[in-house]
Design a protein around this nucleic acid. Structure first.
Lengths: 215, 215
DNA sequence: TAGATTGTTAATCGATTAACAATC
DNA sequence: TAGATTGTTAATCGATTAACAATC
């Protein structure tokens, strides 16, 4: 039904969601696009335009019910569903992400960790077993996995990505410093930390007027 | 001199830089905007427009010298300079970033780590000492620090950010799940991982045609 | 020189902002 | 009802793409 929402809009939704959660914590029950725009430092127009891509969540003369809007955006983002995930590459970053328990409460459940290092075989992180990478294909056959987190050296990432696609994975959260070449129906969300740092560095180098930037 | 380059352009520079490094590895000496556009899956027009924001790096009839263009973009990004950094919050993610040695070769030198946990006092990560957060202000007085990496719980981040600003920090690489309210001359680059995952989740939930996305 | 390919201007497309009628 | 504020259309702004003259 909702057709072709622009990526710019989608990327703003989690931020709305976060601000609305804060408002709930503060006990705020309703908010107008104008008040929210002041808090978030975006235009009220943009807020109303963004939300109306998904339907009329507000009420004229009243504004938006905070809890309702929060939950609706949660649904739009798919946070009402459970998303089984695996993580591939238990290095520093991989272990840090595996240790982070915050994803669970949004429905992102890590059910397996894979690495090439035999020393890690059989051990666990937060109760989640570390498997050998050789067992990946079997695991994908026997378990429903939606998302794979790729925290691998760039050299190994493309080959592993291909195996993931063959195994029916739906989405890859890619932390490897490489672009993956996947079929159109596989979602790839890239997090290139070093590129984020370079962007920061650019702004440092010059006499640029700064503004806060989303990565 | 270079005035007001759009953020969209800046965010593409690190990717050009990465592809050019790969071309150097492959022994490619020159490349046309057309060939590069095919590899990177962007338009040749965009490549030429982007680069010409910074000057004419190419030559008609020839294309671009790979090594030269790579190095020029490096300079634009400020990778020819050294950027002393500190990291605040030695939790899972903080430790992972501290352990990552790859930043050094781009000039990003981690010179101090701070945490509130007394158990960590005096220990080191990759030879970099962990200080108590109480010593932050003194450290900033005694050391030239450009960038602070914030890997803290959201509750503590704003207060620490304020101390950093007072201590003369130039830029904050913010991993905390909160927007920081800093003066205009302080650069903030946000990395909100949970928001990145939500974006991925959105694309999963629906029958959206996927395309690879930069976070 | 002829061919190739840039640098750059012009045209198009998309996203943001402004305005206001609808309506709670 | 009157006031407030949305939903939505129209205007503006900015970014991308196309076209082509300049030039190596």
């Amino acid at each position: 039904m909702d057709k072709d929402i622009s990526r710019a809009v989608i990327k703003r939704l989690p931020r709305y969601y976060r601000y609305l959660a804060t408002l709930i914590d503060e006990g705020v029950e309703r908010i107008s696009s104008n008040d929210l725009s002041r808090r978030m430092r975006v235009t009220a127009s943009q807020i109303r335009q963004d939300l109306n891509n998904f339907g009329g969540f507000g009420q004229q003369g009243y504004g938006y019910n905070v809890r309702f809007l929060h939950d609706e955006i949660g649904k739009i983002l798919g946070l009402d569903a459970t998303h089984p995930m695996i993580l591939i590459g238990a290095g520093n970053l991989g272990q840090a992400l595996a240790n982070y328990s915050g994803f669970d409460k949004s429905g992102f459940n890590l059910i397996g960790i894979f690495d090439a290092d035999p020393a890690l075989s059989g051990s666990m992180i937060r109760g989640i077993p570390i498997h050998m990478i050789g067992d990946l294909d079997t695991f994908l056959l026997e378990n429903k996995v939606e998302i794979a987190i790729l925290t691998l050296p760039k050299a190994e990432a493309p080959q592993v990505a291909e195996r993931l696609v063959e195994g029916g994975i739906k989405a890859i959260w890619n932390f490897a410093h490489v672009d993956l070449d996947t079929p159109d129906d596989v979602i790839v969300e890239n997090v290139h930390l070093s590129e984020s740092l370079m962007t920061l560095s650019y702004n440092l180098s010059e006499h640029h007027k700064s503004h806060q930037t989303e990565s």
